[in-house]
Amino acid sequence: MRHVQVTEAKAAFSGLLAAVEAGETVAITRRGRVIARLVPDKPIMAADAFRPFWDHPGEIDLVAPDERPPEPIATL
Rank of each mutant, 00 (worst) to 15 (best):
I73V: 15
F50C: 07
I44F: 03
A9D: 05
H56S: 11
R33G: 11
G58M: 11
A12F: 06
P40C: 05
S14A: 15
E67K: 14
E67M: 07
D55P: 02
A74Q: 11
R68E: 09
V34L: 08
H56C: 05
V4Q: 01
R51S: 14
I28H: 00
P65W: 01
I28N: 04
P40Y: 02
T7N: 11
R2D: 09
A19K: 07
Q5N: 11
V20D: 00
P70D: 11
K42H: 12
D61A: 15
D61Q: 14
L16D: 01
E67G: 02
A47Q: 04
A36V: 02
A36C: 05
A18K: 11
P43F: 01
H56I: 12
F50T: 00
V39A: 01
A9I: 07
H3K: 15
A12I: 03
I73P: 06
F50L: 15
T7D: 13
L17P: 06
T25R: 15
P72S: 07
K42M: 12
P52Y: 05
K10M: 15
F13C: 12
V4D: 03
Q5R: 03
L16Q: 05
G23V: 01
I28S: 00
A47R: 14
T29H: 02
R68D: 05
A11F: 08
F13S: 07
G23F: 00
L76S: 12
E24G: 06
I28V: 13
P52W: 00
T75Q: 13
E67L: 08
A11G: 11
M45R: 14
F13Y: 15
V63K: 08
P69W: 10
D48R: 10
G58F: 06
F50H: 07
K42S: 10
P57V: 13
E24T: 03
A22N: 15
L17S: 06
A18C: 00
D55A: 14
R37G: 10
R31S: 13
V4C: 01
R31N: 14
H3E: 15
W54S: 04
A64W: 00
W54P: 01
L76K: 04
G15R: 10
S14E: 15
P57D: 04
A47M: 09
R2P: 01
R51L: 12
D61T: 15
M45H: 08
A27H: 07
Q5H: 11
R33D: 13
A19V: 05
K10T: 09
R68L: 09
L38I: 01
P40V: 04
R31E: 13
L16H: 02
V39H: 02
F53M: 09
R30N: 12
A9E: 03
A36R: 03
G15S: 05
R2Q: 13
A64D: 07
R31M: 12
E21D: 08
V4P: 01
H3P: 09
A49Q: 06
E8T: 10
D66C: 03
I28W: 00
A11Q: 15
L17Q: 05
A36D: 04
V4T: 05
L76Y: 11
T7F: 08
T7W: 03
E59S: 08
T25I: 11
R68F: 02
P40D: 01
I44G: 02
K42A: 10
P57E: 06
Q5A: 14
I35Q: 05
V6N: 08
E71C: 04
D41G: 13
